[in-house]
Design a protein around this nucleic acid. Structure first.
Lengths: 334, 334
DNA sequence: TTGTAAGCGTTATCAC
DNA sequence: GTGATAACGCTTACAA
């Protein structure tokens, strides 16, 4: 293939390698005629600079390592997309590895990235200990997205999930609901825990007790939404609203309700979390807490780029936005 | 950060660079004691091989370039995910660039990949001319996914979209539908054209004429599904079934129907294409033609890996599978 | 302004 | 078996 090197075009243009490099990078002024000759040869021979060699020489690889967890979750995938978008026109290309939500493979993945001498890191989610991250990354700029850290040890862009859970729940309470079921996310997942905490807080603030029978386990899957509603129904627990840990779970819950012929929002109100694309088009359109996933990814991309350039970047805590659609209504009068 | 090189550990282990390289790569037998010393030093100094340098020396970068189009389409994203999964344990890491469905940026994207000296290419969708691809790639192995080519010039993994469109339509015809509307995909998109061709073929085979009023333009978006149904309704066109170009469009169509209080599948049957995750949980669960997106991506990954290793790989044409759920029923008796 | 030469961290080719 | 030493393709002092 294209194995034409800087040397070849040097010869063709009757100049030295250095001169070629100079005109290609604009790193110094060269005589007009030589410049022209170089450019011409470059075009004629179809020269494509070898980024690998350039990286080795400069010590910068112009690539950003992105660690995803790849559970196929719409949310995380969207964040990753945001990173790709955010990196456009920065000159950096993203290289992806996935940790599969397992600490050891996460560490390996990060090491693989570092071995490739990425100039910066974007870590989406994950569970490796903070100090371990610090140690691994060394001086490579890193930003962590969609994960709350306990310390200020790293720049992060994450969402306030307790606030999100609080807003969702409060919205339903304001509509008049008193028996709001919650189908939680993965047990140990910080986001799930925080959203539940928001649910709790909203109840407390309203002076409402939480019936333990209304709290269902889940795992962010649609299936757990189905299971949650089925359980509620099987146990004949009274409820007029359901807060699902995320939209997928809400879709599952909605389907279970549909199967029993229970109308939404006529008989039961439903609220999700994330605002993934399909939420707009579900029937009824799903009221949900929007997480700005794509924007978070984009910001993260800009952040690493800035960090690499020696600029500073402050950790961001974004807030979810309640997206009012049609799955929430006052509880039935009965 | 970790700037310890092979040289450092050579010194620490009292051997030469070459020996270190040898034990690290197992490329030749070295004395037990030296081997041990090297390994020990490697661990102790926390040595991480510099992949960039290795790539330059070996002429292989151990990375696979993946060109996506990144329209945020569930289908293409899933293919990309499949590639990531398929590359696991192959030693190759994927690096992503996106062409945004524009020929010139596609070409640039591929060039960027080639400049990084990727060992292989996976091109997902896209519209660059085949001969241009050939010319660009040179001797770099490439496989094209989710795109039908006219010639045998490249290995491809794609779906038979006319067959898919045919199956979907025939299914509805078999259920007794005679007035099946279709909301097409993007006008010039080959997949859209093929699916429509399948729709036509099924009609022809059944001896059914196609009322032009039943053929709606679309663009694979949910909005175009809404618009399609709205138009049908506004023009008072009779129809008992809708074939949407993909699931997103079907979701849009379903919502438009819902808004008018038209029951699915009681009054109107609906069929989609893709079988994206949410199709299982829509209400009613959507009957659709499943495209094995993830599998296609995985296969593509294995294919490039094989190609790089000098093995052969035959182009694959997979067939969609009709996934029977609950959105199709016989037309109302009336 | 321009060329020479010394790296960048590995691997590969030699001799020994 | 093992160690010099020359690539790999590019950038970047350092001279001229």
């Amino acid at each position: 293939m294209n194995t034409v090197t800087i040397q070849d075009i040097a010869k063709a243009a009757n100049v030295s390698k250095s001169t070629v490099s100079r005109v290609l990078n604009g790193t110094a002024t060269v005589a007009e005629d030589k410049k022209k000759a170089v450019l011409e040869a470059t075009k004629r021979l179809g020269f494509q600079p070898n980024i690998v060699a350039r990286s080795l020489a400069k010590g910068r690889s112009m690539t950003i390592g992105v660690l995803t967890q790849l559970i196929g979750s719409p949310f995380y995938d969207t964040v990753a997309q945001g990173v790709i978008i955010g990196l456009r026109d920065t000159g950096y290309s993203p290289i992806f590895v996935d940790g599969q939500w397992q600490k050891n493979s996460e560490v390996e993945a990060i090491q693989a990235l570092l071995g490739r001498r990425v100039d910066g890191l974007v870590l989406i989610g994950g569970g490796v200990a903070e100090n371990e991250i610090t140690q691994l990354c060394g001086s490579t700029p890193a930003v962590i997205v969609a994960r709350k850290l306990n310390s200020e040890s790293h720049r992060t862009i994450h969402m306030d999930n307790v606030d999100g859970g609080y807003r969702a729940t409060r919205h339903m309470i304001e509509k008049g609901h008193q028996r709001i079921a919650i189908i939680k996310g993965l047990g140990h997942h910080p986001d799930a825990i925080d959203r539940f905490e928001g649910y709790r807080k909203a109840h407390q603030e309203a002076g409402l007790d939480i019936d333990p029978g209304l709290v269902l386990e889940g795992d962010f899957s649609a299936d757990s939404g189905v299971a949650g509603v089925d359980k509620l129904l099987a146990e004949k627990t009274l409820f007029t609203a359901v807060f699902a840990a995320n939209d997928m779970t809400a879709f599952g819950a909605r389907l279970a309700l549909y199967r029993k012929g229970i109308r939404v929002p006529g008989e039961v109100s439903l609220i999700g979390f994330d605002d993934q694309m399909e939420a707009t088009y579900s029937t009824p359109p799903l009221t949900t807490v929007r997480q700005p996933a794509r924007e978070m990814g984009q910001q993260a991309a800009h952040a690493v780029a800035a960090l690499i350039d020696g600029e500073e970047f402050e950790s961001q805590c974004v807030h979810g936005e309640l997206v009012l659609r049609e799955s929430v209504a006052p509880p039935p009068a009965d």
